[in-house]
Design a protein around this nucleic acid. Structure first.
Lengths: 219, 219
DNA sequence: AAAATTATTTAGACAAATCTAAATAATTTT
DNA sequence: AAAATTATTTAGATTTGTCTAAATAATTTT
């Protein structure tokens, strides 16, 4: 099936928003894609026609098996290009998302597989997200929670869920990246802030807002 | 200026067809882009509006200085990606053109320059075509002629002007690639064929049609 | 130089992807 | 359960890039 770039972006966004088998709403998708609900309705009809999604008026959207397969291919390409940009071209993690958004639309399986091989078949991208293999299989992420939910004291950063340039640059500035080890010093209900401490550095305070997007596991 | 992929393809095609300051005709451009003359007229108006081309009804098309600059950026990206695919991902030269057609539209100067650096700032692509540098400057290709025009006997292949998969695969099969040294054994007017001989191989016969697309210089 | 041919442009249409404004359905509040 | 609010869809318009068919300009042939 030959999809346009717009169609690919919809499929990818639906995949991202669909937790389990909860249907994705028109509004949520419009917000995610920075477009209008009316446009989402239009596209939903097309993608249903192409059997990539299940869609009934007013009932929301879910991917079909075929749609999920397509989504995983796009995600695979996106994350492999991110690895390439960081590992080979020395970009920093907050710069690569936008570039990968463009590169992911080059739909050549041969290119994708060669790129993967060239990079040593990585299983996670620079933000800690798992990379689907050529068959769409993904390593199950190890149990992780967001930093604001963590009970353990000594933690390691495994992923970042919000890939906005702003957040990633902020974390960069604070010295927080994948694999960074840290301890929770205190959690202040008073102003919803968390005090953390990294090795060889003074402790620092971040908001719960930020902590929600930092995934960690006990070390 | 933000150009669409279609606009970029027109600018690139005009650059390719424009020899010296001869204007490019509507028909030639339509043929090159596999579209209709009427569509070319439509797009010509848009590109004139954007000051990328000079265009007067019935008088043909030439690039402005701005248009030439844009074209060179696209050509630079195209040829760098071709180098990447051949040098790093082990594609053969006939496979890379189509992929580079897509990759060339990722318009990030930072990416382009990092890629160039990563490849060792190459000055020619896998087909022997020169790569413009970040300022649009290109190494002047050394004097070369097409194989069917060559007078010298001992020659080296410097470029291939037609990048169709068919021709490149044909040359591959015959063992002809960039840098290949050969001798002209005979040129038969009778059936417009040329007999050539490469080192350590029996002589072989190719048509003038093919020879026209093989660029050579005396060795 | 008139006729025939070829090249180019115009006019009007279409598909894809989007939008706004209005209508309708679903959900929440009172 | 009626009213108010929110979510979604429909209808109709817009932009981009393309097309066909017809009209016009340029060039070539006779």
């Amino acid at each position: 099936m030959n999809l346009s770039i717009a169609e690919e972006n919809y499929v990818k966004a639906i995949y991202k928003l669909q937790e389990g088998d909860t249907a994705v709403t028109t509004n949520a998708l419009a917000y995610e894609l920075d477009t209008k609900p009316a446009s989402v309705t239009d596209m939903a009809k097309k993608l249903k026609e192409k059997q990539l999604i299940d869609y009934e008026k007013y009932k929301g959207i879910t991917l079909t098996a075929e749609g999920r397969k397509t989504a995983l291919q796009i995600v695979r390409r996106h994350r492999l290009w991110e690895c390439f940009l960081v590992d080979k071209l020395a970009f920093s993690w907050e710069e690569v998302h936008e570039l990968a958004e463009e590169l992911e639309h080059v739909r050549s399986e041969k290119l994708t597989n060669r790129l993967s091989e060239y990079l040593g078949n990585p299983t996670v991208d620079p933000h800690g997200d798992p990379i689907p293999d050529a068959h769409g299989r993904m390593a199950k992420p190890r149990p992780q929670t967001s930093l604001d939910q963590a009970n353990a004291k000594r933690l390691v950063v495994t992923a970042v869920t919000d890939q906005s340039v702003a957040l990633l640059a902020f974390l960069n500035a604070k010295g927080i990246r994948l694999g960074t080890q840290l301890e929770i010093v205190a959690h202040y209900e008073y102003d919803n802030s968390i005090e953390i401490k990294m090795k060889h550095a003074p402790s620092l305070t971040i908001s719960e807002q930020v902590a929600k997007n930092i995934m960690v596991r006990p070390v």
